[in-house]
Design a binder for these strands. Sequence first.
DNA 1: TAAATAGATCAATATATCTTGATATATTAA
DNA 2: TTAATATATCAAGATATATTGATCTATTTA
Lengths: 106, 106
Amino acid sequence: MDIFLQSVGALNDETRIRILAFLSRHGRLCVCDLESSFNMIQSRLSRHLKILKEAGFLRVEREGRWAYYSIRSPLDRFRQEALNEIATLPLELPELSTSCTPKGNP
Amino acid sequence: MDIFLQSVGALNDETRIRILAFLSRHGRLCVCDLESSFNMIQSRLSRHLKILKEAGFLRVEREGRWAYYSIRSPLDRFRQEALNEIATLPLELPELSTSCTPKGNP
DNA sequence: TAAATAGATCAATATATCTTGATATATTAA
DNA sequence: TTAATATATCAAGATATATTGATCTATTTA
């Protein structure tokens, strides 16, 4: 129950849905890339990323001072189906903006 | 987006998850059956049933003064997968109690 | 027609979640 | 070692959602 509620709770927010869609499309991004792409303050993104990570949707790789987030793989059936559903939504996502990483982004 | 968020929002509550599991197991029940099974006040159940119905999980059939709720069929992929997931959860559900329907329950 | 029953809805309160701005931590660059 | 950068976390206020008890509607029974 709790694990399912945690997954569902993580999906129950427009910002997090957009983050999932954006990471599905662009792969592995650091917080500051998301920050400049979404034009959101950093604490807000960091919090949402934490919720998505703890719910099993994302993984993080720390490299120096950067934290790279990406869709976790493999996902279980329910999370994968949720992600498939999100991929079909007519979301207007921002362009990818990487201005915050002068040298960091591989 | 909104339709997905509505589905997810409907799933984002322990009471509603239990109602879905209970209706999956027992089929078609009226509000008063759920009321006596779950030992919950009627307004609370009615509200949760409305949310599940509007999110596309349930259908209602009115018969006289009774309102019979059941899992809507067919469900789309995401809702069906959510229901499958709920079916695997180790929920402790109440026994079915139909004391409230002296003659109504087919 | 009056009383009883099933269910829906509303208003008030309680509880949870989100957003923001400030601050803390860690890493790298000067 | 100091400053700057990337990220995380915290506290306060704002917003959303859940619960309860009361009331309303519709239907059936006496």
